[in-house]
Each structure stands twice: as C-alpha cells, then as structure tokens.
C-alpha cells in the first residue's frame, strides 16, 4: 500500500522536495506543509517540478500554511488539492504510512 510523503522545506532553499519526488513511487501522495507550500504556487521557476508530479501522485497543500504566508489567494499548480489540519489527519489514516522529508 502506498505512502504519504510530507515536505516542509522551501524548494528554493533546500533539496527535500527533489529527494521526495525522486523516491515517491507512483500512487503515493505528497503533502506540502510549512515552508514546503511555496512549491505549490504556479508561475514560479520550480512549478514545473510539481506539474510533472501531479500525473503520478495526488498532491496536497496545507491551507493554513498557505494563508499564513500570504499565499492563500495565489494560483496553485493545477491538480493540487488544499486541505486543512483535519484533512491532514485524514490523509495520514488513508495512506498506510507517512514519511517526513525533513
């Protein structure tokens, strides 16, 4: 069964998202939290990374972290779904293990 991956680092500063994407097998899900949410915004130089991931993975972003950072009204990469903390909990229970790419 598939894994839920979480990424909490800005893709502009750190390599965690790259490492996560290279190890996430097809069908696993990716949740962007904390500074990781910047990867979900469309029109950036890293947006292409997530665009190529949404075909093979469900990609989620934590809404409260988007809003906190002034990104709540910015356009997200197509195919990304926003969840709240309750949605985060649901993902943890729906997928059968969690890997945090710290």
């Amino acid at each position: 069964m598939a894994m839920l991956h979480t990424v909490n680092k800005s893709p502009f500063e750190r390599r965690s998202l790259d490492s996560c994407l290279r190890h996430a097998v097809k069908g696993s899900a990716i949740l962007l939290i904390e500074d990781g949410i910047y990867a979900a915004i469309d029109g950036t130089v890293v947006a292409e990374k997530i665009k190529s991931a949404v075909g093979d993975h469900k990609v989620y972003v934590l809404g409260p972290d988007l809003k906190a950072r002034g990104m709540g009204d910015h356009k997200l990469v197509d195919g990304i779904e926003t969840v709240d903390y309750a949605g985060f909990v649901d993902l943890v229970t729906e997928y059968d293990k969690v890997q945090s790419w710290l």
């Binding site: 909490n8 943890v92 229970t93 059968d96 293990k97 969690v98 945090s100 710290l102």
Partner: peptide, 8 residues
C-alpha cells in the same frame, strides 16, 4: 497504527 514525524 501510524507514527507521524514533525521536525526540521
């Protein structure tokens, strides 16, 4: 059933 890690 699940262990969730929060860190840096």
């Amino acid at each position: 059933d699940r262990l969730v890690v929060f860190g840096d």
